Simulated scan of single mutants.
Amino acid sequence: MIRIGVFGANGRMGQALLQATEKATQSQIAGAFVRPSSTFYQISVGPIIGSTACQLAFSDYQHAETDAIDVLIDFTLPQGMLTHLEFAVAHKLPMVIGTTGLSADEFAKLQQAAKTIPIVFSRNFSVGINLLLNLVQTAAKTLSDDIDIEVFEAHHRHKIDAPSGTALAIGEAIAKAKGWQHDEVARYDRHHDHEEKSQNEIGYSVLRAGDIVGEHTAYFASMGERLEITHKASSRMTFAQGAVRAAAWLKNQPAGLYDMQDVLGFK
């Protein structure tokens, strides 16, 4: 049995993580952490996630009983995640991180922390998306060099970073397979272009609307045919279940920085 503490437990993803932890046969909720100013603070977790078994209340992580926690999970925004990461390092607790939109400096801090504790960091914890990352690499290696490559993604209106972390992960996987430096070939805006696109680039397009959980498509198009590899998520539970799976895998790993490809044995 793995005991999991969840940061940002009052949010939509946080509640999904609590539900996934509660439903998994090999895990249990050891902490549901919120700010003391939150309306959820000190109220019972069970009724919020539809559980009659969970007797915990939402609490402040700074007063957590760390001996009762095996792994922490964090899908909060970058600034909050970094604060939580300091807590994890101080108490030598493994951490699963699904925070997106990290700057180079923020990611460097995550890498530094991984020298002390084991961390699984992934932009997407869906098993399907991680399989897609393998498929797009196969396509990039197999198809001819005159192929046009584009990545499309759609999310709900509240998502802040664009392109999404998952879209970037798809583009980076393609660039790696092609032997390209991603930052040199990524195109985010063609507003001022006055010439035909190059085949040595990866274009990104973004949609933000309504309550779309997450859709990603990699396009490989040539004159005469088009290959589309698509993943559509209909529930946040897909990501939450993957994160809980990652937490169970991470519990006994040595310090280091891992990703969902490691968890699934794709590497």
Score class of each variant (00 low, 15 high):
Ala108His: 07
Pro118Cys: 05
Ala90His: 10
Ala139Gln: 12
Glu86Tyr: 09
His84Pro: 02
Thr99Trp: 00
Leu131Thr: 15
Asn134His: 07
Ile117Ser: 05
Glu106Ala: 08
Leu77Phe: 03
Leu143His: 03
Gly101Val: 00
Ala140Glu: 12
Gln79Leu: 14
Ala88Gly: 11
Ala114Pro: 05
Gln111Phe: 02
Gly80Arg: 05
Leu93Met: 09
Gly98Phe: 11
Ala139His: 11
Leu132Thr: 04
Val89Asn: 07
Leu102His: 05
Ala90Leu: 10
Thr83Gln: 14
Asp145Ser: 13
Leu132Met: 10
Pro94Trp: 08
Ala88Asp: 12
Val136Met: 14
Thr100Trp: 00
Phe121Cys: 07
Leu102Met: 12
Gly80Pro: 01
Leu77Arg: 03
Met95Pro: 05
Ile119Pro: 01
Lys141Ser: 07
Leu132Ile: 07
Phe125Asn: 12
His84Gln: 12
Lys92Gly: 01
Phe125Asp: 05
Val120Trp: 06
Asp146His: 07
Leu133Phe: 07
Gly80Gln: 10
Gly128Glu: 12
Ile119Ala: 01
Thr100Leu: 01
Gly98Thr: 07
Phe87Thr: 12
Arg123Val: 10
Asp145Phe: 03
Arg123Thr: 15
Val120Gln: 08
Arg123Gln: 15
Thr142Gly: 01
Glu86Ser: 13
Val127Phe: 10
Gln111Pro: 00
Thr76Lys: 00
Leu110Phe: 04
Asn130Lys: 08
Asp74Arg: 08
Ile119Leu: 01
Thr100Asn: 12
Asp105Ser: 14
Leu77Val: 06
Phe125Leu: 02
Ser103Gln: 06
Arg123Met: 09
Val120Cys: 13
Leu93Pro: 02
Leu132Asn: 06
Ala139Met: 12
Lys115Ala: 08
Phe87Met: 14
Ser122Phe: 04
Ile117Tyr: 08
Leu110Val: 09
Ser103Met: 06
His91Phe: 15
Asn130Pro: 11
Ser126Trp: 03
Pro94Glu: 09
Lys115Phe: 00
Ala139Tyr: 06
Asp146Leu: 01
Ser122Cys: 13
Ala140Cys: 08
Thr83Lys: 14
Asn134Cys: 06
Asn130Leu: 04
Leu85Phe: 08
Val120Asp: 04
Ala88Leu: 03
Gly98Glu: 01
Thr99Arg: 02
Ile147Tyr: 08
Ile129Asp: 04
Gln112Thr: 11
Gln112Glu: 08
Ala140Lys: 08
Ala108Thr: 06
Phe125Thr: 13
Pro78Trp: 00
Leu77Cys: 01
Glu86Phe: 02
Asn134Gln: 09
Leu102Arg: 07
Phe121Met: 01
